[in-house]
Design a binder for these strands. Structure first.
Length: 270
DNA sequence: CGCTGACCCTGACGGC
DNA sequence: TGCCGTCAGGGTCAGC
């Protein structure tokens, strides 16, 4: 489910209801996530006040004066606010009850996500080796160009590598490469500076658009179904294998790169 | 260090 | 209707 736009949408949705709120209770129904949910989590969290909800890459960071709750939604996770009376459904693994009567509920069928605690001042190894945020000023064509010199792997794997840049998932990697006219299997080390300028701005563009579309669901986030609005967005290549390219009409092809499906147009992407 | 492939887990979907 | 293989938007890790 979540690419960077949905994680950001989630952050914007839950943050106004969490900030300034004291945690009154924590219930962990299933601790078997990507890494086990710490047994001490309830004891550590109860009584703390969420000062802010931040995002780094696809991690959500709930700051308190004692430390930080670090949440990742994995592939199938979601976080939403429900009434404390609402009974949990299957795969609702964690409840964090707040003073305002709401419950922050973590749901994750595949359990690829995680929910961890960081002591104040502790830098988690997961956050240590991350590349720049794609929407930051430090991320641009020049950066990608310099990073890629000497590398032989496909450009698509390169831009999905969190050590290079965070938050570019499979959907938007496909879309950005189409918009920049670059074949996903081209060696990243052999792409020109000018094309990287275009690619960097297309990545920013596609993520920005998706975030603003995801924002349409914010209104009914509380008690809503949490379904991302950007699903409705017209994707140009992702999920369109065998269909005509919207730019030239050529049939879109699929290739597998790094275990993930890549859809592209042989005419528009070189 | 860079790159590849296996793996973590459940659910949805298409073919037979 | 039901069974089975395949695939899914995340990321880590071992091995070469």
């Amino acid at each position: 489910m979540p690419e960077l736009p949905e994680v950001e949408t989630t952050r914007r949705g839950v943050s106004p209801h969490c900030e300034g709120q004291r945690v009154t209770a924590v219930e962990v129904r299933d601790h078997r996530l990507r890494w086990p949910v710490p047994d001490q989590l309830p004891a550590l969290l109860v009584g703390q006040v969420f000062q802010s909800v931040e995002r780094r890459a696809k991690y959500l960071l709930f700051r308190t004066s004692a430390g930080t709750l670090l949440v990742h939604l994995g592939m199938s996770g979601s976080l939403r606010l429900v009434s404390q009376e609402e009974p949990p459904r299957r795969h609702d693994h964690i409840d964090i009850l707040l003073k305002n009567g709401l419950c922050l509920r973590y749901h994750d069928p595949r359990r690829f996500g995680c929910c961890l605690w960081l002591e104040k001042g502790e830098l988690h190894p997961l956050l240590g080796k991350l590349g720049p945020e794609p929407l930051s000023a430090g991320f641009d064509g020049d950066y990608l160009y310099r990073c890629s010199r000497g590398r032989k792997g496909p450009i698509k794997n390169f831009i999905m590598d969190a050590k290079v840049v965070v938050g570019v998932g499979n959907i938007y990697a496909n879309e950005a490469l189409f918009l920049a006219g670059i074949r996903p299997d081209r060696a990243s080390g052999r792409i020109s500076r000018a094309r990287y300028d275009d690619l960097a701005s297309q990545i920013k563009q596609v993520l920005t658009t998706a975030i603003s579309n995801g924002g349409t669901t914010l209104r009914d986030f509380v008690g809503g179904d949490g379904k991302p609005g950007y699903f409705a967005q017209k994707l140009l290549v992702y999920g369109r294998k065998g269909e005509p390219c919207k730019q030239c009409g050529h049939t879109l092809r699929e290739a597998r790169l790094g275990q993930r499906s890549s859809v592209y147009c042989v005419t528009c992407q070189r």
